[in-house]
Design a protein around this nucleic acid. Structure first.
Lengths: 121, 121
DNA sequence: TGAACACTTGAATATTTGCTCATATGTTAT
DNA sequence: ATAACATATGAGCAAATATTCAAGTGTTCA
C-alpha cells in the first residue's frame, strides 16, 4: 500500500514530535563541527595519549623520556605524539638531538579535569 | 657487550633527565585512571554520538526522533545510546512505547564547550 | 667525514568499532 | 490474545587504529 514506509527500521513517532524535532533541526550546526569535535575527542580516547598528556601536564619532556616513563617503545610514542601534534594539542621544541614536547592548548586541562570529575562521580 | 641495551629502540637520555622523569613517575596516578579517562573520551570520539549528545543538550528525545533527526536507522541510534548509557552520559525514561533519553551529567556541557573552544581557535 | 644518537615514518598486523540485518523484548490498542 | 509499534540486541562485516618492525632523516661529536 501507499502507506508503507521505505525505511522499515524507522518508526514514525517523529511525526507526533515533529514540533520538537523540527525546532532542534533548525538549530543544528554544520556537519563539519560535529566531525571536528569527534576528531578532537578521539585523540583523548586512548590511554597512551592520555598518559602522554598527563605527563606533559607535569613537565616538558623529550620523546625518550616519555617512552621510558610509560615503558613503551620510542617508536610507539613518536607515532602518538604525531597524532597529538596534528590535533594541535602538543608542540615540539628541538634542543640538540632531543625534541621536547609540551602542551599547546589552554583547554586541555579543563577537558581533562571535567573528564576526571565525571569518572569520579 | 654488557653495555648493549635490550630495548634497541629506546635511547638512554632519560638517564640525563632522570630527576625529571623520576619526579613525574612518583606523581603518576594508577593505570586504571588513565584507562577510565580514555574510555570516557572514546565515547565522545564519534560524530554520531556527538550529534546525539548535542541533540539531547537541546531537548529530551526518543530514539525514533533522534534517528529521524540524524537520518540514521533506529538500530544504529539504539546501539550508540547503549554506549552513551554505559558511560553514564545519558539516561532513559520510558513513556508508553517510547523511551526518551536525556543527558545525565553536568560535566558534559563543559567538556563539549572546551572542545569547541579548541577547534575554533 | 662518519659514527652514534634521538627521533620520524611507512608498511604490516591484530584488535577495535560502527553500522546493517535479522530477531527478540516490551508496550499499547483492539 | 493478537497485531502493531518502539526499542533493544546479537551476529557479521568493513573500516579505522595502535603497536611493532624496519628503514629513513637530522643532529652532535670525535
Amino acid at each position: 500500500m501507499s502507506g508503507k514506509k521505505d525505511e522499515s527500521l524507522r518508526c514514525d513517532c517523529h511525526v507526533i514530535h515533529s514540533d520538537i524535532v523540527d525546532r532542534v533541526r533548525k538549530k543544528m550546526p554544520p556537519e563539519e563541527m560535529f566531525y571536528d569535535l569527534a576528531e578532537l575527542f578521539k585523540v583523548f580516547g586512548d590511554s597512551t595519549r592520555i598518559k602522554i598528556i598527563w605527563a606533559l601536564f607535569e613537565e616538558e619532556m623529550c620523546v625518550c623520556d616519555i617512552a621510558y616513563l610509560l615503558n613503551m617503545t620510542q617508536s610507539a610514542i613518536s607515532h602518538q605524539l604525531r597524532v597529538l601534534k596534528q590535533a594541535r594539542l602538543v608542540k615540539p621544541r628541538r634542543d640538540g638531538k632531543n625534541i621536547f614536547y609540551s602542551l599547546d592548548d589552554q583547554h586541555i586541562e579543563e577537558i581533562f579535569n571535567q573528564g576526571l570529575s565525571h569518572i569520579n562521580e
